[in-house]
C-alpha cells in the first residue's frame, strides 16, 4: 500500500549545509572583538605583553600613550607606578575570564540544579527555592561583597564566591520557569507513562530542552560578571593589588583622571568592548537557538 511508504518531509538539507549556513550567519564583529580583547590576550599573555605587568620603573611613571607623544615602548602609556598599561590589560583579561568562568560555572550549576528541582517537583521545594531566589535578588550584591570582603578579606576565591552567590538566583529563577513549562509537556507525560524515573525525565527530557536557555543566559551573564568584578575591584573588595584586574585599574586611575586619563580609560574601554560584544553574541545566540524562530 502506498500510504505505508510515507517518507520524511522534503528530505531536509544535509548536516554540512546546515553547518555552513550557521557559519555564514555568525556575528563576526562581536566575535572578533571578543577574540582580540579577551581570548587571545588571555591565552598568549606572556608572548604578547611587552612589559612586566606587575612592576614598572618609577622613572617612567604617568607616560602618555605612544600615539600621543609618549615613549614608543609604552603603547597605551604607563600608570602611576610606571607599569605598562597595555601589558596590564593583556594580563587582566585572564582575571576577567577566570572570575567569570568560575563564577558562572559554580553559580550556574547550583542555580540550574535547584531550578530543575523546584520546577519539576514543585511543592515545598519550589516554595523554598523561590523564596531564596527572591531573598538573594533583593539584597544589594555590592553590599554583601563589602561585608564578606571585610570579614574574610579580598581574594580570588572570595570574588568567585560572591559572583556565584549572585548568579545562582538568576539561573534558578529562569530554569525553574522553563522546567515548569516542560514538566507539563506531553512528552514528559509520555515518558512517565513509559516508566521513566524522575531522574531520567529531568536529565534526558527537561535538561536538554533548556540547554539553549542556559547557553544564552551564560553569555549574557558573562558581561554582567565582568562589570561586576570591575565594580568590586573598583571598590577595593575585588582582586587584590597588584593584580592587573581591569576594574582595579580603572579605580587606580581615578585620582589621575584629569592629568593622566589613559590609566582609567583603556581598561574601561576593554570592559566596555567585551561586555558589548558578549551581549551582542548572546542576543544572536538567543535568536538562533530559539526553536520557534528556527522552525520556519
Amino acid at each position: 500500500m502506498r500510504e505505508a511508504q510515507a517518507s520524511a518531509v522534503g528530505a531536509g538539507p544535509t548536516r554540512a549545509r546546515l553547518a555552513w549556513r550557521w557559519l555564514r550567519e555568525l556575528p563576526l564583529l562581536p566575535i572578533a572583538i571578543i577574540l582580540v580583547v579577551l581570548v587571545i590576550p588571555a591565552i598568549f599573555a606572556e608572548y604578547l605583553a611587552p612589559h612586566n605587568p606587575y612592576s614598572g620603573s618609577l622613572r617612567a611613571r604617568l607616560q602618555p600613550p605612544a600615539f600621543l607623544g609618549g615613549p614608543s615602548e609604552f603603547l597605551l602609556g604607563t600608570d602611576h607606578q610606571g607599569r605598562d598599561i597595555f601589558s596590564r590589560i593583556i594580563f587582566g583579561s585572564r582575571i576577567s575570564i577566570a572570575v567569570a568562568g568560575a563564577g558562572i560555572l559554580i553559580g550556574g550549576s547550583i542555580g540550574t540544579t535547584l531550578g530543575l528541582i523546584a520546577g519539576y517537583f514543585r511543592g515545598v521545594a519550589e516554595t523554598i527555592v523561590t523564596r531564596l531566589v527572591d531573598l538573594t535578588l533583593s539584597i544589594p550584591a555590592i553590599l554583601v561583597a563589602l561585608v564578606v570582603a571585610a570579614a574574610i578579606g579580598a581574594r580570588f576565591t572570595t570574588v568567585v564566591a560572591i559572583v556565584a552567590l549572585v548568579l545562582w538566583a538568576v539561573y534558578a529563577r529562569q530554569v525553574r520557569a522553563e522546567a515548569l513549562k516542560w514538566a507539563q509537556s506531553d512528552f514528559v507525560a509520555r515518558a512517565r507513562v513509559a516508566g521513566a524515573s524522575h531522574f531520567r525525565i529531568i536529565v534526558r527530557h527537561i535538561l536538554p530542552n533548556i540547554a539553549n536557555t542556559l547557553i544564552v543566559l551564560s553569555t549574557l551573564q558573562l558581561g554582567f560578571v565582568i562589570v561586576f568584578e570591575g565594580s568590586l575591584s573598583f571598590l577595593g573588595v575585588g582582586i587584590p593589588r597588584p593584580n592587573p584586574a581591569w576594574g582595579l585599574m580603572v579605580a587606580d586611575g581615578r585620582i589621575h583622571v584629569v592629568s593622566a586619563w589613559w590609566i582609567a580609560f583603556f581598561p574601561g574601554l576593554a570592559i566596555m568592548l567585551t561586555v558589548l560584544s558578549v551581549n551582542m553574541l548572546g542576543d544572536w545566540l538567543r535568536d538562533r537557538l530559539d526553536p520557534k524562530l528556527t522552525q520556519v
Partner: peptide, 12 residues
C-alpha cells in the same frame, strides 16, 4: 478511503 502521502511542505 485514505489519501496517501503528506501535503507539500511550505517552500517546496
Amino acid at each position: 478511503y485514505s489519501i496517501p502521502g503528506q501535503p507539500p511542505a511550505p517552500g517546496q
